[in-house]
Simulated assay, not measured.
Amino acid sequence: MTAAQIGILAAIVVYLAAMVYVGFYFSKKGAGESADEFYLGGRKLGPLVTAMSAEASDMSSWLLMGLPGVAYLSGIADAGWTAIGLAVGTYLNWLIVAKRLRRYSVACGAITIPDFFSRRYEDKKNILMCIAAIVILIFFIPYTASGFKAVGTLFNSLFGVDYHLAMIAGAVVIVGYTVMGGFLAVSTTDLIQSIVMSIALVIIVFFGIHTAGGWDVVMNNAKSMAGYLSMTQLHDMATGGSTSYGLITIFSTMAWGLGYFGMPHILLRFMAIENEDKLKVSRRIASIWVVISMFVAILIGMIGYSVSKTGSIPLFASSSESETVIIRLADLLSRNGFLTSVIAGVVLAGILACTMSTADSQL
């Protein structure tokens, strides 16, 4: 194992150990003494933890891989309208749903979303509860499994560790702190993970701009490509031309934001805040973080293309390749010494944080 790999591994191991410790800490604080404590943390989340845990659990690895990958290949239109739709959906979910759900769930004593449906609509036979639970199981089992898969893929590509062994180890860590500490542990680790994700974004932006040759170079490269900086055109990396981005496509892309109103792992945060009056603070924190983080992620896609033009990383031609732009930049960063390899490890821990924050909340 090289010095760079040791530095990266050290940063990731410290991060994973911290997640397990959080679970252990809350298990000692009595997180599993009652169903209300385990599933909703006794409804005592602060506004910061509520906001950041909700958004970290939502973004998943899409924020650090999918969104930069789209921007890298096709410019800002597709990524930009998606980000706008998600930002609007985030804000409206906090504005319209949060206080009502918090108030009604307390009034009827519900601690899960399926439980809420049955109690709120006085379903004595619990038919609504069963339907909601089945829907969650059907769609969340593969989603959560994909999070475990991402952990295995990351360790396999970085260190050559057996894919299945890495996946199982990642699953043990995530399930471990989730089971030990319950909702409070998951929400606290999500807060930490949102911080790690933010640090990863900032590091890659500055390193990428430096490697590309400066901000002016990044902008000049973007301007030189047809439709790359347009909100009504898509750049075609294969032909070098552009295609129109019509009104129907814009509305379809923005419709991503509608999904927020039905995501149980986000809705539970509304139910768990200590006071409904603090939801306004949470809404502001969540909305600002989402807007800034998605803007920076799109910017990383643009920067990544300029770094490719220097020959420091490959020029990607497909979405599966372009989604690895942050991993490639982190690998490039790790080659500058042990200290930078540790910093690169923090960036890669940010990718893990995206994956784990979603998987633990879904669990």
Score class of each variant (00 low, 15 high):
Met65Asp: 09
Gly23Arg: 04
Ser27Gly: 13
Asp190Glu: 01
Met19Glu: 04
Val88Ala: 12
Gly80Pro: 15
Glu276Leu: 14
Ser293Arg: 00
Ala297Pro: 12
Thr249Gly: 15
Asp277Thr: 15
Ala255Asn: 08
Ala353Leu: 10
Tyr143Ile: 01
Ala54Gln: 06
Val202Thr: 10
Leu86Lys: 02
Ala185Asn: 10
Leu45Pro: 11
Ile303Gln: 05
Ser357Met: 07
Ala83His: 01
Ala349Cys: 14
His164Met: 15
Pro114Glu: 09
Thr249Val: 02
Thr211Gly: 06
Ser57Val: 01
Gly241Phe: 11
Asn220Val: 00
Tyr25Gly: 02
Gly227His: 12
Ser242Glu: 11
Ser60Phe: 01
Gly240Asn: 08
Ser282Ala: 05
Val205Tyr: 07
Leu9Ala: 12
Met197Phe: 02
Thr239Asn: 07
Gly214Tyr: 05
Ser53Val: 00
Thr189Lys: 03
Asp36Met: 04
Phe140Cys: 12
Trp94Asn: 11
Lys223Asp: 15
Lys125Cys: 11
Phe261Thr: 02
Val173Leu: 15
Tyr305Leu: 09
Glu276Trp: 14
Ala272Leu: 03
Glu122Arg: 13
Lys280Glu: 11
Ala171Asp: 15
Asp331Asn: 05
Ile195Leu: 13
Glu122Met: 06
Met52Cys: 15
Val179Asp: 09
Met129Val: 03
Ala77Cys: 01
Ser230Cys: 09
Ala10Asp: 01
Tyr228Arg: 06
Val175Asp: 05
Ile96Val: 14
Leu86Arg: 00
Gly41Ile: 00
Met19Arg: 01
Ser319Ala: 12
Met65Val: 12
Thr249Glu: 15
Leu267Glu: 06
Met167Cys: 11
Ile113Trp: 09
Val88Ser: 15
Leu348Phe: 09
Ser157Cys: 06
Ile113Met: 13
Leu101Ala: 01
Thr144Leu: 14
Ala145Gln: 06
Ile113Ala: 02
Ser357Trp: 04
Met263Pro: 13
Ser357Ala: 13
Ala31Leu: 10
Gly30Gln: 05
Leu73His: 02
Met263Ala: 08
Met180Gln: 11
Ser157Glu: 04
Gly246Ala: 12
Asn275Phe: 02
Ser74Phe: 05
Ala185Thr: 00
Leu165Gln: 11
Ala349Trp: 11
Arg283Phe: 09
Gly69Pro: 14
Leu137Asp: 13
Met263Lys: 14
Ser320Thr: 14
Ile174Ser: 10
Phe139Met: 05
Gly46Lys: 07
Ser27Pro: 14
Ala238Val: 10
Gly304Val: 04
Ala349Thr: 05
Glu276Gln: 13
Ala226Trp: 08
Ser27Cys: 09
Ala349Ser: 15
Lys28Gln: 07
Ile8Ala: 02
Pro47Ala: 00
Gly109Thr: 00
Ser27Gln: 10
Tyr228Asn: 05
Met225Ile: 13
Arg269Ser: 04
Leu333Gly: 08
Pro142Leu: 03
Gln5Phe: 07
Gly80Cys: 08
Leu329Lys: 03
Gly181Met: 12
Ser27Asp: 11
Ala226Tyr: 08
Ile313Asp: 06
Glu37Pro: 13
His265Trp: 04
Val291Gly: 00
Phe183Thr: 00
Gly227Val: 00
Val151Asp: 12
Gly301His: 02
Ala56Ile: 02
Ser357Leu: 09
Ser312Thr: 08
Ile326Trp: 03
Leu339Ile: 10
Val135Asp: 12
Ala3Asp: 14
Ala297Phe: 01
Val307Ile: 06
Ala330Arg: 08
Ile76Trp: 01
Gly337Asn: 08
Arg120Val: 02
Leu95Gly: 07
Phe117Ala: 02
Gly30Cys: 13
Gly75Glu: 04
Lys278Leu: 07
